[in-house]
C-alpha cells in the first residue's frame, strides 16, 4: 500500500480567519491524507521549514487578507532556495483573477477562489502529490 499523502496546511500573514483552513484540513484528513496544520501567523520561513521537517508533498496556503502578493512569491522563492521545488503549493482564499493567474505563473499549482468544492480541492492535492 502506498503511504498516505502528507500535506501542510498553513495560515500565513496577520489574518486570523481560520474557518477555511480548518475545513480544508479536515476534508483532506477525511480523504485519508496526513495533515499537519501550522496554526496562525506563520511567516514564509516558518512554513517552508515546517514543510521540510514534516517532509510534506503539498503545502496549502489560506490567505484572505489581500496580502497574497507579498507572501506567496516569498514561499515559492524559499522553496527554490532550499531545493524543495518538488513540494507543490496550492493557495486558497480571496484572490482576484489576475493575481491568481500571476501566482500560477510563478509556480503555484492551483489557486482556489471562493465557492471551490471540497471534492475539487481534494482531487487537486492528490494529483499534485502524485506529480512528484
Amino acid at each position: 500500500m502506498k503511504p498516505p499523502i502528507r500535506v501542510l496546511v498553513a495560515k500565513p500573514g496577520l489574518d486570523g480567519h481560520d474557518r477555511g483552513a480548518k475545513v480544508i484540513a479536515r476534508a483532506l484528513r477525511d480523504a485519508g491524507m496526513e495533515v499537519i496544520y501550522t496554526g496562525l501567523r506563520q511567516t514564509p520561513e516558518m512554513i517552508v521549514n515546517a514543510a521540510l521537517q514534516e517532509d510534506v508533498q503539498v503545502i496549502g496556503l489560506s490567505i484572505l487578507s489581500g496580502a497574497h502578493n507579498a507572501i506567496v512569491p516569498r514561499v515559492m522563492e524559499l522553496l527554490r532556495e532550499k531545493e524543495m521545488a518538488d513540494v507543490k503549493v496550492v493557495v486558497g482564499g480571496i484572490i482576484p483573477d489576475d493575481d491568481a493567474r500571476e501566482l500560477e505563473r510563478q509556480g503555484v499549482t492551483r489557486v482556489f477562489q471562493p465557492g471551490a468544492s471540497l471534492d475539487t480541492i481534494v482531487a487537486c492535492v492528490r494529483e499534485a502529490a502524485g506529480l512528484q
Partner: peptide, 22 residues
C-alpha cells in the same frame, strides 16, 4: 487594517503587504 488590529505599526516588517488592505 490587520497590522493595527495586531498592534503593529505600518512600517513593521510583519506588516509588509497588509497595510490598508482590510
Amino acid at each position: 487594517d490587520l497590522p493595527t488590529l495586531m498592534g503593529y505599526d505600518s512600517d513593521d516588517p510583519l506588516a509588509a503587504g497588509e497595510v490598508g488592505k482590510c
